[in-house]
Amino acid sequence: MMRLPWFGFHSPRSVAEAAKILAGEGPNAMLIAGGTDLVPNMKRRHQAPKTLVSLRRVDELKKVSNGSGLRLGAGLSLTEIVDSQKVRGAYTGLYQAAAQVATVHLRNMGTLGGNLCLDTRCTYLNQNYEWRKAIDFCMKSEGDICWVATASKRCLAVSSTDTAPALISLGANVKLVSTQGEREVLLADLYKNDGIDYITRRADEVLTEISLPDSVGWKSTYWKLRRRGAFDFPVLGVAAAVKFAGDGTVEEARIALGAVSSRPLATKAGNSLIGKKLTDEAIAEAGAKAQNVAKPMDNTDLDIYWRKDVVSAFVGYALRELRGDDMRETRMRIARQVL
């Protein structure tokens, strides 16, 4: 049986207490929320933090509050996000993304904050210690080379979160709290295009809240490509949010891609839609632009050329759905469930 390494354990009751423990323990401590990402990684000895600081009993991370938009506590489980009528109704893309994370059980455990902080992944990395030893490790774990592209100066592990592209397309902000104070950043700015240094959250910060702007006039969607209807991380995620004028003209549009970079990729492909209606031509143009910037690497399942080849098609599915086309059959073939 795969087992965790030894670790010390704290279970604070408040964000302030958690922040204080993190500040005291320094980089040897790691936060654990649902554990669905960290526990397997620890079992594989990617990380062996001396101390785990659990957020499970921090009730304030479970809050949902309405304002002009919606504020979601980072400790809400993905199941709670999926079950939220408010999310389903106003932020469809987030609902669809959350509903396609891993499996029922993992969504019951995993949190929204955890999915946003999800460590980058790679088929050269997410392996047991013995396997990694057999390739003499890689840049992200005890080695020097990135085997995805051996000339690369940086780690090319892939961002595999589903909810981040959806939330980026929805224009979300996140709040980070430490003993130094708190700050709010645009979610898109939380990430860096580096498989190792992929997140700007400092080790002493707790991601506490996700805030979504008002959704009036917006429609959003998320399409996830993976082999199976459950378990799998995305090999491509397409999140699109479009604000329509009354006559169907696009006023704003954001298209974010998952699994094609070391961070969720906020593309500019949506800009080409502004001022236009979602005609087939406009959709094809946006799809081509998105495909252009997508850089799938040999770090996950399926053929990399194919993964790039289908970006435009998936952006097309997303935009056609937002236009009002009946995409249920296609959705069913891809997602294998009603969303």
Partner: peptide, 21 residues
């Protein structure tokens, strides 16, 4: 490198169909 390794010896990456598939 001399390596010759199983590409993904795991339940996640060896794709066994789920009920949805």
């Amino acid at each position: 490198s001399h390596a010759l390794v199983h590409k993904f010896p795991s339940m996640l990456e060896y794709k066994s169909l789920t009920s949805l598939d």
